[in-house]
Design a binder for these strands. Structure first.
Lengths: 292, 292
DNA sequence: TCCTATCAAATTGTATCCAGTTTGGCCGTT
DNA sequence: AACGGCCAAACTGGATACAATTTGATAGGA
């Protein structure tokens, strides 16, 4: 596992729903992502964030660093007790995480860490490809010398973290690399989109990565910087494409994990012998995605 | 204005944060968007949605159809009274709308319909271009004859709505066209992303469209279908690119609207003669986007 | 012994209540 | 008369209390 998770940059720079500027007439509720021009301020001290944001950050990090593996139940009461707040704040946090796709929430069933299917994984990686190729192309056009230095510093940190065995920080920084690149491209919606995809990629990796492949990708990041600095758009796009492809190659998406969608598994059965309750399942599934 | 707003398909098919499937082992909290293969069920009756979803839908539609113009204050108490629920439910709804970028929420100031800046608009349209070009390419590869028929029916409805003067429905259907295309491409994250961008485009149009340009785009949609049916990916991409470009051309993004970011307007002033409170503004603006 | 139905514990969803913040108005001072 | 500060009303943020739903367990019957 390597190079595709990210946490801090995304969390810190985005006091999400209720930050904002106090005296502005214009206003875009798009998550406030600082442009690279103004000292991105990657990791604002957690202390000075609002409680809800702090909790969000902690849970987010825990998920990305896989201390909370996919499928883990996230009880509102338990979380509230842990962080010393009422369920109100926890619910707000969970709603945000759900919206970003890292947890799934079911009516009257609570929240759990998302367990993307192989098909989900395929779609997410493809979406990342679409977004990040556009980002790297734009970034190659716009990047300043200062920003190149920032990226290089980031990769240096990333490498240092991995080399001194601090895998957690390494994973985080490797995600931040992709985020910082997105900020360079100066497109807030795209950056926000990629941020979510990166975090979901983390879940995918923890589920589908083949055991042996513990290759870290800071060297690919360094290579990417070189190409971007060179200014060749198409070359940069190809480099990013290859980088993302390598991520996909380390996954085993061929065989779906054991636990898949039950209704799909038993789709051929006309009407199960089960209790009448089976009906409610079908009804609840009305507006839901159904691939194939 | 035409062809870029959308409401129903997105709302209806997406009992957002707390829908989900009841008996599935796999689970992806990505918004559940039905695939085109299974009768998309574009407009499930509002009656059978949960209250929170119903309210969300009503507000969402009102914003997209510009019955709630940008800048409108959305008081929790007022909304709660209108829909006959407590503020709790309203807050949940507002959080969701904020996540999707159609409203902006400020700490202790409440929610208001978003007023994207010209720069926001530029970024949103560019993001749409990135996403929709990829979508149309993929859709051209995968589309079935059935899906082509669905798209044609949709455009027919769209045209009929406009021709009988039902502009509201027309606007909705014209957005649904883009959404349906995204569903054909069979990539849930991309479809979700585009959904948000489409709704934000609606806000942009209501702010920046030049008065004269009341051209409706069902003919361009029909043309797009033809090209897609033809199967030429590059041709389809070019057609979509042109279509999106036309949207941008109808906007006046050159001169920022009157009300822009105050801090930017008075940036050249060293330190306003104002009360000490000016400081808090600067502090609150710490983690916020700062273009240029 | 196995199956079914009823019931209770647990947990989420919703409403209400209290606290903190903002904002506009009023009053005193200069 | 104008400016600055104080105060109260309005509204949002958070916590607690109550209602609804799920789910596992237990008792009854075939």
């Amino acid at each position: 596992m390597s190079c595709l998770q990210g946490a801090a940059i995304m969390r810190g720079s985005r006091p999400p729903t209720n930050d904002t500027r106090p005296l502005s007439g214009e206003n875009m509720s798009m998550p406030a992502i600082p442009s690279p021009a103004s000292k991105p301020r990657l990791r604002p001290r957690l202390d000075q964030l609002k409680r809800a944001d702090r909790i969000y950050g902690h849970v987010f990090d825990a998920i990305l660093e896989q201390r909370l593996p996919p499928g883990t139940k996230l009880s509102e009461e338990a979380l509230g007790e842990i962080f010393g707040v009422s369920r109100t704040v926890i619910r707000k946090t969970l709603l945000r995480l759900a919206h970003e796709g890292v947890i799934s929430v079911r009516h009257h069933h609570g929240a759990m860490v998302a367990t993307p299917s192989a098909e989900d994984a395929r779609q997410i990686l493809e979406a990342r490809r679409v977004a990040e190729l556009a980002i790297v192309r734009q970034a190659t056009r716009m990047i300043t010398r200062e920003q190149i230095t920032e990226l290089q510093d980031l990769v240096a940190e990333e490498r240092a973290s991995f080399e001194r065995g601090d895998r957690g920080t390494g994973i985080r920084l490797s995600g931040e690399f992709h985020m910082l690149l997105a900020l360079v491209a100066n497109n807030a919606p795209l950056a926000h989109f990629v941020r979510g995809l990166i975090s979901q990629t983390s879940l995918i990796i923890s589920q589908y990565e083949v055991p042996g492949s513990n290759i870290c990708s800071y060297d690919e990041h360094a290579q990417l910087i070189k190409v971007i600095r060179g200014g060749g758009e198409e070359q940069a796009v190809r480099a990013m494409d290859a980088h993302l492809a390598h991520i996909g190659e380390r996954l085993n998406l061929g065989a779906e994990k054991a636990s898949t969608d039950l209704r799909e598994v038993f789709a051929h059965i006309v009407n199960g012998p089960g209790r009448q309750r089976a009906r409610s399942a079908a009804a609840a599934g009305a507006g839901e995605k159904k691939r194939t």
